[in-house]
Structures are given as C-alpha cells and as structure tokens.
C-alpha cells in the first residue's frame, strides 16, 4: 500500500462505507434487542423469580432526576430569559414586542425544555451509566451477577431505563415551568407586563397538544439516553481507556440521537 492506486482506494472507500453501514445496523439491532429484553424482564421477570426491584428504580430516579434538578432548573431559567430577550429584540423591529409571549411559550414548551433537559441528562447520566457499566464489566462485576443467577439486564438496565423514561419528562415539565417563569420575569421588567398577564396569555396560546408534544419527546429522549448509555457501557473493552472512550462516545451519540429525533418528531408531529 505504499502507492495507493485509484482502484484500490475506491474499493477501500466503498469498503469503509459498507463496514460503517454494517456497524450502524449492528448498533441499531443491539438497541432493539436491549429494548425487547428490558420489556421481557419487566413483564416476565416476576415469574422467573427475577423481579425488577422498585428500590433500584427509585435509586436511579434519584440519581438521574432529583440530583439534576438544580442544574436543569438554572439552565431552563436561563434559556427562558434568553428567549424573552431575543424575542423582544427581534419583535421590536416590527413594533410587536407584546407578542413575545407567543414565541416564548411555543418554543419553550415544544422545543427548548425537552431539548435542554435531554442534553443535560445525556451529559450527566448517559455518560455516568456508560462509565458505571463499563467499569463493572472490566472488573468482572457483570460476570459476577450472571454467575450469581442475577440477570444483568433485569438488575442494572431496566431500572435505569424506567427511571430515565419517567424522570426526563418530569424534569422537562419542570424546565417548561421555570423557563416560562424566567421569561415572564424578564418581560415584566422590560415591558412592564405583569406576571399574571404573561401567564394568562401563555395558557391562552398553548394547548394540551403542545404540552404533550414536549413531554412525549422527552419520554423518547429518556429511553434513548438510557439505552445508549447502557450499550456503550456493555461494549467497553480494554481497561480504563476503554471506559473513557465509551463515556465520550455515549455523550456524543446521546446528543446526536436527541437532536435528530427532535427534528424527526417535530416533522412528524406537525405534518
């Protein structure tokens, strides 16, 4: 390969594309299998004396949800205020600052609250899940579970997926409320609109559909984060470096998946 000729480099390009596609499909397949396995253990576990422990789900909920309230709250408030600032700035051109509420309400509830919550949970918990499972795998803790007759998917994966499925929408709802509140505060100081009037207008323009749009997306993000985190953790090879790589990969994949899913969801939901 000292003098890569054209034919062989084209072949290797196609080869790489092919390999990439196969790897991608393999990854998708793994997600599918893991979802199926998780549902299986959730439903069939109790009959096989392998029930999913509520305690473990609650512990994961604390880790994924409750401990993230502070940072997600601050970020949501900042985004809400930012939307109000930019909204007023751009609407001023048309002399329509009063309509800022519509823009803020729609974009916060339908878009920014689920997105920012998803990205933050991905950064906090997606990576943590990969690191935890990766380290457990390297230390043979996963093998240890298996030989103790404890199914690792039931014991480790299902609690995380359930917790994430519940907590990301809950956090998203909190983000919506805090974002709107911060926007209302800014609009109050900038335009002198009372908080009550802001909220009134918000509830006027928003429908239950908008709320469900945001929360539904958040639930999908929740499952995606947990699955990607878990799979990257289970695939760790080769010591501490492998754990580091898996963590990075997990965050990148989570955020990419969230953004792409967000776009697809918006496309389908507004068709």
């Amino acid at each position: 390969m000292a003098k890569g000729n054209k034919a062989s480099s084209t072949a290797s390009l196609f080869g790489r594309i092919g390999q990439g596609t196969v790897a991608f499909m393999e990854e998708l397949g793994r997600h599918g299998v893991l979802v199926a396995e998780s549902v299986y253990w959730l439903l069939a576990g109790p009959r096989m004396n392998q029930p999913v422990r509520m305690g473990a789900v609650i512990a994961e909920m604390m880790e994924i949800g409750v401990r993230a309230i502070g940072i997600i709250g601050i970020m949501a408030a900042a985004i809400g205020a930012m939307l109000a600032i930019q909204g007023i700035y751009s609407l001023k051109i048309f002399g329509a600052e009063g309509h800022v509420v519509v823009g803020v309400a729609f974009s916060m509830v339908r878009e920014f609250a689920p997105l920012i919550t998803g990205i933050l949970v991905a950064g906090r918990s997606g990576s943590a899940l990969s690191a935890k499972l990766g380290t457990m795998k390297i230390n043979q803790e996963i093998d240890a579970l298996e030989v103790m007759g404890i199914n690792p998917v039931r014991f480790l994966v299902v609690p995380s997926v359930l917790a994430s499925l519940v907590m990301v929408p809950v956090l998203t709802f909190m983000s919506m409320a805090l974002g709107l509140w911060a926007a209302a505060l800014y609009v109050n100081t900038a335009l002198g609109m009372s908080l009550a009037a802001f909220m009134d207008q918000t509830f006027d323009v928003l429908s239950v559909d908008d709320l469900l749009h945001g929360i539904g997306k958040a639930a999908i993000f929740g499952v995606l984060i947990a699955l990607i985190g878990v799979i990257n953790g289970f695939l760790v090879k080769g010591g501490a470096e492998g754990v580091g790589k898996a963590t990075t990969r997990s965050v990148v994949q989570c955020i990419s998946a969230i953004v792409v899913t967000d776009m697809l969801f918006a496309l389908v939901a507004t068709w």
Binding site: N49, N139, Q140, D143, A144, G149
Partner: peptide, 29 residues
C-alpha cells in the same frame, strides 16, 4: 438461573460491587 444458585465464583479481582458495603455484597444473592 436455578443451577447458578448452586455455583459460587471467586473472581480474580474479587468483582465486589463498589457501590455496596462488604456486607451488602455478601448479602446480595
């Protein structure tokens, strides 16, 4: 699963769960 309850394994590195105390590790099964 039932068969595995009759097997015990002491792994090379111990494979104790780092998030649990020694007692909790032993009580897990």
């Amino acid at each position: 699963f039932e068969l595995r309850k009759k097997l015990g394994v002491a792994f090379q590195g111990g494979a104790l769960f780092s998030s649990m105390t020694v007692g909790e590790n032993i009580m897990l099964p």
